[in-house]
Structures are given as structure tokens and as C-alpha cells.
């Protein structure tokens, strides 16, 4: 039970930092960067559950982000729904889609499952591109309103920062509890040995599908928050490349820990921003953007060579 206490403490401290930070760091740029860290971290957290507990790689997780963003975006921008209702529906849509898709494809495992999820992600992408009457097509959907409580609108970086990090910490707390619960123990048993878990009377397939649905919901929630923050959505940020980026974040942060997703997202976002600031200074020219991606790729390789278990290190406690 010590771990539950420690986690609660950690979250309380984190929540206090989140509450206080906007006053200490007034820069909207820094806060905005941190908003994206939280959104990517939420999305990656969903995937991290699939990878950590179901032991499976999804190469189509971006599709859930897209579903969340489009359900919330279309309902509010095109149909004038209340933002919170739309966001809740977006989250539910992520879970329902995951159940519908996961039903058949979670009979697969390993590379076959990765392939099937990859296919799913690409199909969703083409639906977004071509169903333009609803989605706005490749040129996107503008005019998505910010979330609001009464007259209080989450329309500044400081407010969205608190909202996004609040959501992230809440989800971390909930999933942390889940990990420690009876269900969590069953999940770990399945992750360790599916056959042994089945022998002990655990319905492995149903559990894994449940994890996939939860992951879908969490990633869709992140997508919904993204839509209300940026106020504009188009399909291109939600393609195959983002699915891969989420896998990178999870592995970079470490599959073994829920905080790994947060670390991984922070590392990827921060690295891009650091390179943007540092490279022109280093090369004494501002025509250096081409080099940024070379350095980014090399740093990613170096990280994996020296920290193959990820930034959070270690293994998930069995």
C-alpha cells in the first residue's frame, strides 16, 4: 500500500505545481509547450497501457486522437453543442470504437495486431480526408470554440494549461489505482503469461479488450482537448506519423511506468523546441532547419542505445 500513498503524494505535489506554475511562468510560449506535452502525454498514456499491460503495440493510436478531436470539434463547431457534452461523447466514442475494432482484431497479437491497427489508423485517416461534408476534408474545420464553465472560458494558455494537466493528473491517478487493483493484478498476470493467467481463471481476451477500450478513451480525450485548444483541426496531424511518434514517446519514456508516457512526451516536445532555439545559435545562421531533423533522429538513436529501457528506467513491478 506504500506505493498508493507515494503516488497520492506525488500527484498532490504535481497538482500544486500545476496550479502555481502559470503565475511563476507567465510566458504563453512555455505554457503552450507544456499544454502540448500534457496532450501528447495523455495520448501516449493510453498507448502505454496497451503496450504495458496487453503487451501489444498499436500502430494506429493516432486514430483515437483524431476521433476524439473530430467528434468534439464537429459537434461544437458545426452543431453548436455544449463543449463538455461533446468532450464526454468524444471520449466515449474512443472507447466504443476501440471495442468495435478491438473485438475482431484483438484476436491477433504481435506483428499481426500491429499491422491491423496500422491499417485501422490509415482507414480512419482516409475517412477524415474524404468525408468532407462532415469533417471539412483535408483543409479542415475552423471555429471550434474553447471549453467554458458559465462565463469562464478556457481560452488562455494558462487556463488550458491547468485544464490539460489537471486531466492528465486525474487520469494518472485513476489508472494508477487501476494498476494496483484486483483488475490490475489480473492484467499483470496476463502480461506475464497469458496461459498461466487463463489457467488461474482470468479471462485474458476480455481484459485486454478492456485495456484497449480504456486506452481509446484516454487518447480520444486528449484529441478532444486538442481540438478545443487549437480551435482548428485537419487530418494531417493525425496520420501514421503521429501513431509512430506516440510509440516513440512511450518507449522513450519507458513502457514500465505510467509516468514514462509523460516523460517521453516531454522529452520529444522539449527536444524539438530546444533544437529550434539552439541550432541557429550553434551554426550561426538561421538557415539551419534542415539539420534539426538529422540531429533529432541521431539523439533518438543515442537515447535508445544508452537507455534502452527508457527514461523512467526499470521494469514494471510484477
Amino acid at each position: 500500500m506504500g506505493s498508493a500513498r507515494r503516488r497520492a503524494l506525488l500527484l498532490v505535489v504535481a497538482a500544486m505545481i500545476v496550479a502555481a506554475l502559470p503565475a511563476a511562468v507567465p510566458s504563453r510560449y512555455v505554457l503552450s509547450t507544456l499544454v502540448f506535452v500534457a496532450l501528447h502525454a495523455l495520448a501516449a498514456l493510453g498507448l502505454s497501457l496497451v503496450m504495458g499491460f496487453a503487451g501489444q503495440v498499436s500502430l494506429g493510436q493516432a486514430a483515437f486522437f483524431a476521433i476524439g478531436a473530430y467528434v468534439s470539434g464537429v459537434l461544437t463547431a458545426s452543431h453548436g453543442w455544449n463543449g463538455w457534452v461533446a468532450l464526454a461523447l468524444a471520449t466515449a466514442a474512443g472507447a466504443v470504437t476501440a471495442l468495435a475494432v478491438g473485438g475482431p482484431i484483438f484476436r491477433l497479437s504481435g506483428l499481426l495486431l500491429a499491422m491491423a491497427t496500422l491499417g485501422f489508423g490509415i482507414i480512419v485517416y482516409y475517412v477524415l480526408v474524404n468525408w468532407s461534408d462532415v469533417t471539412g476534408g483535408p483543409s479542415g474545420l475552423t471555429g471550434i470554440p474553447p471549453l467554458a464553465i458559465g462565463g469562464f472560458r478556457f481560452d488562455t494558455d494558462a487556463r488550458v494549461f491547468r485544464l490539460a494537466w489537471g486531466a492528465l493528473l486525474l487520469v494518472l491517478w485513476l489508472t494508477g489505482n487501476l494498476v494496483d487493483s484486483r483488475v490490475g493484478r489480473a492484467l499483470r498476470a496476463v502480461a506475464a503469461s497469458e496461459a498461466a493467467a487463463e489457467a488461474a481463471g482470468i479471462h485474458a481476451a476480455r481484459l485486454k479488450l478492456g485495456v484497449f477500450a480504456l486506452a481509446g478513451a484516454i487518447t480520444a480525450l486528449a484529441g478532444g482537448l486538442y481540438a478545443h485548444y487549437v480551435a482548428f483541426i485537419n487530418p494531417s496531424p493525425f496520420g501514421f506519423a503521429y501513431s509512430v511518434e506516440l510509440v516513440v514517446m512511450v518507449v522513450l519514456g519507458g513502457v514500465a511506468s505510467l509516468w514514462g508516457a509523460v516523460l517521453g512526451a516531454a522529452a520529444v516536445v522539449a527536444l524539438v523546441e530546444i533544437l529550434r532555439a539552439a541550432l541557429p545559435a550553434l551554426t550561426a545562421s538561421h538557415g539551419a532547419a534542415e539539420y534539426e531533423i538529422v540531429v533529432f533522429g541521431l539523439i533518438l538513436m543515442v537515447f535508445m542505445i544508452f537507455l534502452p529501457a527508457g527514461l523512467s528506467g526499470g521494469r514494471r513491478p510484477a
Binding site: 509547450t33 502540448f36 538557415g287
Partner: peptide, 23 residues
């Protein structure tokens, strides 16, 4: 001129814009 690359990516563009405006 302070020039940033957005990598043709919407999120990076938002951050680049905020950096240019703020920093």
C-alpha cells in the same frame, strides 16, 4: 528576421508562433 521551421506540422506551427510572439 527570426525564421522558424514548422516541419509542415500544425502543432509545431502553433508553438513557433507563440515563441515568436512571446520570446
Amino acid at each position: 528576421l527570426v525564421i522558424y521551421d514548422d516541419g509542415s506540422d500544425e502543432t509545431k506551427a502553433v508553438l513557433a508562433a507563440k515563441k515568436l510572439i512571446e520570446e
